[in-house]
Amino acid sequence: MGVIARDQYVSEVAFSVRSAQTPPALELLGGISTLGGADTMDAEILYAFLQSSQIVSDINAEIDIKTKYLCPKGTADPLFCLNADATIEELVAYWNRMIEISYESGSGIIELSVRAFTPNEAKTIAEAAFARSGAMINELSDTAQADATRYANDELIHSVERLKNARRLLAEFRNETQIIDPSLDFQGQMGVISSLQEQLTGALIDRGLVELTATRPDPRLDQLDRKIDVIEQQIKLQRGQFGRSDVNDADAYPQLIGRFEELNVDVEFAEQAYIQALANLDSAQAEAQRQSRYLTAHVQPTLAETSEYPKRFLNTLLTGFFCFFTWLVGALVYYSLRERA
């Protein structure tokens, strides 16, 4: 510890994940528990990422941390230096020995302490770890945004096909029945019946007046009777178009109006779905153009002036204590066995 062990310097950095998304208006005691939910999950993912082999491989490819943790030529530190032929698994295990991570679940702040054999190397490694963590958060955000954009585009394509199909069915109905709007046609037919009823009323009044002043036979009465019969037959024919004895008749007005309303509702619903899908796609594309999540450094990577590790006195004291404890247990076992023998 006093002669061979190399001094280790610590660089500290503290950061948290922040979201640029504007949360919706909260209901009273409603969505309060969801505040920071996504940020907290990202922080937990980042906490696990800092201990993974992925970040070790990325940082090693960028600044070659394997070389930085090797002992210089002519020196040997078997306890704290990295072996020259270390595998990636050994490098990951060594990395987890040389860093300390603390995570506060309440605030979402992650504190990272990185040890190295020089102050500049410790700061360089801490900066690389912070930069790679920010890139990983951006990759997660980009992946989520790409998925949201793809789903919104698929929804838009589906809504367009649905709208086309609804409009095609409505056009086929109009082409088949030669009726643009059955409700308007119904109003026209009702106007015809009202006109016939007015004519019938006038003919009945005329017949009554003639009958008061004329005697049989009178050709005017016969003419008015024939007119009344014709009008009544026309009214009966017109009313027969609004309802027939066969309720399953597809040409009856109730069935025509029912089919038209059903098709019209499908078109209106498809139009609303299309407008909503288009708005969702625009929102997803706008969201994808900006960084929705990012790392905020509360403490920038520090540059140490004095070494803090290895803790020579503490390590020596602990080693001596465990050696003495091991010797004591061994001595007690030895004397116990000797007395029994």
Rank of each mutant, 00 (worst) to 15 (best):
Leu163Phe: 12
Ser102Phe: 03
Gln233Met: 15
Leu79Tyr: 14
Arg220Met: 07
Glu127Leu: 06
Asp251Leu: 12
Ala86Glu: 04
Asp77Met: 06
Leu29Glu: 13
Ser183Arg: 11
Phe80Glu: 10
Leu332Ile: 15
Gln289Leu: 07
Pro78Arg: 11
Ala214Asn: 04
Ala250Cys: 04
Gln291Lys: 12
Val17Ile: 09
Ser307Ala: 15
Ser113Pro: 06
Ala122Lys: 02
Arg259Asn: 09
Arg150Glu: 15
Arg150Ala: 14
Leu70Tyr: 08
Ala288Glu: 00
Cys323Gly: 15
Ile32Asp: 14
Gly320Arg: 12
Glu268Trp: 10
Leu70Pro: 08
Glu287Thr: 03
Leu170Trp: 05
Pro24Cys: 01
Arg174Val: 05
Ala116Tyr: 05
Val267Gln: 07
Leu79Trp: 11
Leu79Glu: 13
Cys323Asn: 15
Val265Asn: 13
Glu89Tyr: 14
Arg132Asp: 07
Ile63Arg: 03
Arg115Ser: 11
Asn280Pro: 00
Asp147Ala: 13
Ala146Arg: 13
Phe80Asp: 13
Ala166Asn: 01
Tyr253Ser: 07
Leu256Val: 09
Lys73Trp: 05
Tyr9Lys: 01
Asp64Glu: 11
Gly74Glu: 10
Thr302Met: 06
Asn96Thr: 08
Arg220Ala: 10
Gln51Thr: 07
Thr213Arg: 10
Ser194His: 08
Leu281Gly: 00
Thr201Ala: 15
Arg150Asn: 14
Ile193His: 03
Ile88Gly: 14
Arg220Glu: 08
Gln223Ile: 09
Thr124Ser: 10
Ser33Trp: 04
Asn315Glu: 15
Phe186Asp: 09
Pro301Ile: 04
Glu211Phe: 06
Glu172Asp: 14
Arg132Gln: 10
Gln300Ile: 02
Ser245Cys: 08
Asp229Ile: 12
Thr40Ile: 08
Ile179Leu: 06
Cys71Pro: 09
Glu305Lys: 10
Ile179Met: 13
Thr149Ser: 13
Phe269Asp: 05
Ala43Pro: 00
Ser183Val: 11
Ser159Arg: 00
Phe186Trp: 09
Ala288Trp: 00
Ser195Lys: 11
Ala171Gln: 15
Ser57Leu: 09
Phe15Lys: 00
Leu278Glu: 08
Leu184Pro: 05
Ala166Cys: 03
Val3Phe: 14
Ala43Phe: 01
Val210Gly: 03
